[in-house]
Write a protein that binds this DNA or RNA. Structure first.
Length: 350
DNA sequence: TATCCGTGGCA
DNA sequence: TTGCCAAGGAT
């Protein structure tokens, strides 16, 4: 690491002092106090592959309901999963709880990158980011923003992910020893507001005079990426059962795999063809419309069956959740889509 | 190393 | 409508 004597780190920090985004987990630049490690950790996990706009509301709700890592550690699993519903990548929520319980047992967060990276859900990026932002450690923080900015600054035309080692070297060469937390956040703010993936605003960039891609007129073309695979389509059927007293028949999904640990409507595994698998003996009605949803690596068409179940119903799969306890917002998005369509069908019948 | 794992916004 | 993209981690 260097100290930024060439002026680039200093120029970026000066820009950050004037233009830092106001974010609820952040301490504004220039202040001596450090941010709460709990809030830094929570925000960093939520922000993994997720936009600031999507995270804001979740962060506010989590920190209101669980203001400390000890409070979160004591929470019920189902409450945390429900509060995370809709944010995606649900392994993050499961690891969040595991991590909170380890940290609460330790009496606080480790203050080094190596110590942080031992914890569930904290990888190389997040460990470096927490160490730098919360504990002022001089770590090299490399995320998607940094990769994009470095690829442009140094005109790296090797496609990602092959370019990662070279990008890391360049990132390390620019990282200053002073104010590492502010510097890390400054590069991310630069990537989020100026050095954006499409149509970068090079004309107002604090690094415009240092950027080789801009000099070549190709900033928007970098970084290059390997072509992506086409998404296949899968099919399935979801069973939305409502008991006579208004309770809903739901199923907790397995801990591992897609939507792991989340609530969902019973049904057979999704595949190349939809398979009928009613979770209880009843007259199931095809509502005639499908829920469409696209996951990271496949499209899904989900047929929907509804039934009114008797009070003495003993389902083969799933459990009844009372009308009072059921919150549609506890469902992952695809299951929420199914519910919205099924509810319309129930109301149409009645 | 490659694959799996969500979602919503936007061009 | 379709594809792309966002502060990655686990296996």
């Amino acid at each position: 690491m260097r100290d930024g004597v060439d002026g680039r780190a200093g120029a970026l920090l000066a820009w950050y002092d004037a233009h830092a985004r106001d974010l609820p987990w952040r301490v504004p630049p220039g202040r001596a106090d450090r941010p709460d490690p709990y809030r830094v950790w929570l925000s960093e996990v939520m922000l993994q592959q997720t936009t600031v706009a999507a995270v804001r509301g979740y962060f506010e709700r989590f920190t209101t309901r669980w203001p400390t890592v000890a409070a979160l550690a004591a929470a019920d699993d189902a409450d945390v999963m429900g509060e995370w519903a809709g944010l995606g990548y649900y392994a993050r929520a499961r690891n969040l709880l595991k991590c909170a319980r380890v940290v609460a047992g330790m009496g606080g967060f480790p203050q080094t990158r190596a110590g942080l990276q031992e914890l569930p859900g904290i990888g190389p990026y997040t460990a470096a980011a927490i160490a730098a932002i919360a504990f002022d450690a001089p770590e090299v923080v490399v995320d998607g923003n940094v990769e994009r900015v470095m690829a442009r600054m140094f005109r790296i035309e090797t496609p990602l992910p092959r370019a990662k080692p070279e990008i890391r070297e360049k990132a390390a060469s620019l990282t200053p020893d002073a104010r590492p937390g502010d510097y890390a956040q400054a590069v991310m703010d630069l990537g989020a507001t100026i050095c954006t993936p499409k149509s970068p605003a090079c004309g107002i960039c604090p690094w415009m005079d240092h950027c080789r891609a801009r000099a070549a007129g190709m900033a928007a073309e970098l970084p290059k990426k390997e072509p992506k695979k086409a998404k296949p389509t899968r099919y399935g059927i979801a069973y939305v059962g409502r008991r006579a007293d208004g309770a809903w028949l739901l199923e907790r999904r397995p801990e591992r795999g897609l939507l792991g640990g989340m609530l969902g409507w019973p049904g057979a595994e999704w595949g190349e063809v939809a398979q009928e698998a009613p979770p209880a003996a009843a007259i199931w009605r095809d509502i005639g419309v499908e829920a469409r949803h696209t996951f990271t690596h496949f499209h899904l068409y989900l047929g929907i069956r509804t039934a009114t179940l008797p009070m003495d119903c003993v389902p083969e799969r799933g459990e009844f959740v009372s009308r009072h306890d059921f919150r549609p917002s506890d469902l992952p998005t695809v299951m929420r889509k199914v519910f919205d369509l099924a509810r319309d069908a129930f109301e149409t019948v009645e």
